[in-house]
Nucleic acid binder design. Structure first.
Lengths: 238, 238
DNA sequence: CGTGAACTTGAGATTTCTCAAGCGGGGTGG
DNA sequence: CCACCCCGCTTGAGAAATCTCAAGTTCACG
């Protein structure tokens, strides 16, 4: 499963066999995680990075009065606290499903990146792409309707999961509740529910029991004004 | 003015005199920019990075129908297209005022970062902090009222500008229009105008003619639910 | 003076929210 | 094995925030 990490990194630049081995060897241990487990908590100053190897997770912040904002969803191959390499954590990361994570000591990561600049480039690129995704979410929350926002998020997840080999015949696992969806998009759960019904009613998709099924991809991308360019995958959606 | 770059970088880790010199020498040329000039445009694949040395700028994306989302404001010391080092540009950067930028060839930047790992760490840190700011904007757009959102943005800008030595007696230059503010916060210009009046009415601030004056800092931070932690400045707000 | 950009105001229209209640299926203790 | 319970989903209906359209004002600048 450690190969999920190198597979992900190589979306942004090829690595030699040697480099791949070096990167995979940084993962000194793996461990199973349960659904809903906090992997990293606001205020932590981690000494390791966590790579998600199996399952899904999300990054989020909760305001004093309980309002929550989800800022990203993670899929296998993602490093979920790369920020912790240089800065403290200013948000939480929680698993969505049972899965597995790998641990990479910061010291090892720093060392490998110095020896293999291309791996450094790949890691840095993943954090730049993550920032690009944040910006796109801002466009959605600032300027798109609830309808387009939901469609856009599903498009994004499908493209990312497809690149990771996690989409089979227009279906993929996305184990979130409508409440998660609402907190990611800045909507109320009620409005999310009704808008989801509209999307379903248009025959664009189906989303229940944590499974997302795309029924009309052209229609969905149009509804979400989706253009995958910001994911910088260079046509890698196999 | 090139020292603005090293001053900014050192918010996230000290650099030796040697390293500072190496970093500053990467700037092979500077040039004046006019207000409203596009510094980088969506689709560019730059060969240089641009450091803002004087004046202010903003990053933005425009949707096909003209809706615009502003994703960041830049102040002197910021590298505004660090993303271009590894990825193409997926958004625009435009100057807000007359100013000056420095050019850093990618080749030089790569070389200096390999020779001086601490400078690499500093550059990378700036991009991580930028991502942290994106996340905080997401919290605002998703979960905060227009009133809190505006207050929060002003708090953020004041803290950042203060760290750069650009705030004098609770006053700083922030040459944006109410339309810019609206596009940054996902609001209509009309609503921004009325909300700004409320903030002014509470005696928290004054914002006209491109000058921001903070009249009640505790009140403003409370109104914006502002906590500077996400800026990761480690108490550097002099 | 004339002009244009930015700001301001009024007022009705929409989107989205909140509160409140009902439904449904899976898991669990009796 | 069944009743109960909880969580997530769904629905209704009124309320609030925010938007849009449209017009008027101000002020710097030519």
């Amino acid at each position: 499963m450690v190969s999920r990490l190198t597979a992900n990194l190589q979306l942004y630049g090829a690595l030699s066999a040697d480099e791949q081995r070096a990167v995979e060897n940084m993962v000194i241990s793996t461990r199973a995680v349960a659904a809903g487990e906090d992997l990293v908590v606001e205020g932590d100053a981690p000494t390791h990075c966590r790579v998600l190897l199996e399952g899904q997770a999300f990054r989020h912040k909760t305001l004093p009065d309980g309002r929550r904002q989800i800022m990203a969803f993670h899929i296998p191959g993602d490093v979920c606290d790369l920020q912790g390499l240089f800065l403290g954590m200013d948000h939480n990361v929680t698993s969505l499903s049972a899965g597995e994570i790998g641990l990479i000591p910061h010291a090892k990561l720093t060392e490998v990146m110095e020896v293999h600049p291309r791996s450094a480039r790949a890691f840095w690129s993943t954090s730049l792409v993550e920032a690009a995704v944040f910006r796109e979410w801002m466009v959605g929350m600032g300027r798109r309707s609830a309808y387009a926002r939901i469609a856009h998020l599903f498009c994004e997840m499908v493209v990312r999961m497809r690149a990771a080999g996690l989409v089979h015949q227009n279906r993929c696992s996305f184990p979130i509740t409508q409440q998660h969806l609402s907190d990611a998009l800045g909507l109320s759960a009620v409005h999310t529910n009704r808008t989801l019904q509209a999307l379903r009613g248009e025959g664009l998709l189906t989303f229940q029991g944590g499974e997302l099924v795309i029924m009309d991809w052209p229609g969905l991308t149009a509804a979400g004004e989706f253009d995958a360019g910001y994911l910088h995958q260079a046509g890698k959606s196999a």
